[in-house]
Amino acid sequence: MKLFILLLVPFLWAQSPDPYVILDRVDQNMLSTTKILEGKMIVYGKRNTRTITFRSYSEGIDKSFTEYLSPAREAGTKMLKLKDNLWIYSPAADRTIQISGHMLKQSVMGSDMSYEDMMEDRKLKDVYYATVKGEETVDGHACWILELNAKVKEVAYEKMKIWVDQQRYVPLREELYAKSGQLLKRAVFSDVQRFGSRWYPTKINYRDVLKKGKGTDFIVTRLKLDVIIDPYMFTKAALRR
């Protein structure tokens, strides 16, 4: 087995691996049919740092339901995403409001991520042409550098670069670029852990590089993959429950 890998590596090196195969392997690794994730979001603000905890349920990439658990201020706020629609429920007002239009550009809980960033749910290979641009070691792990260029028009970032761990098929770094090539946002993935047969990064730092600041950390505290989720979870009625 080891020998096989040793033989394979120079083979891949020489041939330059198929970028779409890499993307597929990443999807295979990361995309479970269902997922229950508990985590926290650390927002580094101008004057203080806030930690927001949440639990989210998702099925595929179309459906997700997130409930905020703490701090007390955000507890009970729920968010439902079904395809292109996003609803937010606030217990303080006991109302569900659909987030649309200009409101999608607002940041999620003060983080560097907008609702719109969160809404993107197409598979990368459906949106981008990919090429392997080389290799680099990130945090001691050999990575392929994938360059993705948009093949469809309706896309927020025309160009992306992804550093994919050659062994675990996990992205370790992601950079989002403007059409002009200007770097706009950067995500750094770390603390990759094993969950059953899958590898999953448990810490992501997401940052708008044009703005001053340290960005936002997403930390996974519990992750259950491929579990059964009640379909009721993905209905508007569940928001008010």
């Binding site: 028009k153 309706e154 927020a156 970032y157 025309e158 403007a178 059409k179 002009s180 200007q182 706009l184």
Partner: peptide
């Protein structure tokens, strides 16, 4: 199309 762009 909603694609970000930035220049100096």
């Amino acid at each position: 199309n909603g694609t970000f762009d930035a220049v100096e």
